[in-house]
Write a protein that binds this DNA or RNA. Structure first.
Lengths: 147, 147
DNA sequence: GTTTATGCAAACAATTTGCACGCGG
DNA sequence: CCGCGTGCAAATTGTTTGCATAAAC
């Protein structure tokens, strides 16, 4: 089991959203949402489809696309493109935002969080008239072992 | 005129590359390269094609795709995906780093530079034992017109 | 002349849409 | 029942590839 508390709170966020909009709770939406929420960091549509079909072989890719769009709309998922043409969805633990620092030699990825940087970003965005929803910060370099 | 010095130095970088690889200098490549290099910051393939056809209506989209790939290979262009499905190419004056803020509704992209953020990143990386080579910061949200 | 480049059309891949049917409320 | 959801197939969109011809060297 993966973090039952935050998981169920997220599922209830989806359900609230569905109710507000007069949408329906279906088995497919539940399956797809659970797969996404228990994915580690990023997951692609192809992968979601494969896992979903293990639970219900009749699920179609259209439904996965549409459900993921729903999850984006209610703030549970963030779509990302890493340059290979496919969209990946990121599942971010809402209270644990982090950025990445990546070693270009050994590919080690470490995570960090710096509130000062976050605050400055908000200030920056605000001065440009933007309302921030999310952001991505990646630092590339050499780690202590490789430098 | 836009920075004639750096522009011609970049064009000669392309020509050197072509020579090394035994490739040919053609009118199309010159037109497309100049359009790209004098574009402000980012430019998409559709836009390049339109401008190129104003100079030579027979230019095909295939050639634009292939030429932009060339420019990437010789280090003059950086491909970027901002989430609307199309690839944009960034023309960066090699010493002028900037970050991006992207509107998720209208796809408008603005640039900014904030030295405080850059400094904090260095400090952050240093405390993790990393030597920074480069980084990428993208903020996503709604712009003043869309919020 | 030989080799690479071009432009068209066809192929591809990821995603979206139209529609008849099924299911949730 | 009524309306939204689903899954299929067809349509769209961005990009790549095959091929005959044209241009560079």
């Amino acid at each position: 089991m993966v973090q039952p508390v935050s998981l169920s709170s997220k599922i209830s966020r989806l359900n609230t959203y569905l109710e507000e909009k007069g949408l329906k709770r279906t088995l497919q939406r539940e399956i797809i949402t659970k797969i996404f929420l228990s994915s580690d960091t990023h997951i692609g549509l192809d992968n979601i489809l494969i896992k979903a079909r293990r639970k219900n072989p009749k699920i179609g890719s259209t439904t996965v696309y549409r459900t993921m769009k729903l999850l984006v709309d209610c703030g549970l998922a963030t779509p990302r493109q890493f340059g290979d043409g496919r969209t990946q969805y990121e599942n971010l633990p809402e209270d644990d935002h982090h950025d990445h620092i990546i070693c270009l030699k050994c590919s080690r990825i470490e995570e960090f969080h710096n509130q000062q940087i976050e605050d400055l970003q908000l200030k920056m965005a605000d001065s440009l008239g933007f309302k921030v929803l999310t952001h991505k910060l990646e630092i590339y370099g050499y780690c202590s072992a490789c430098r």
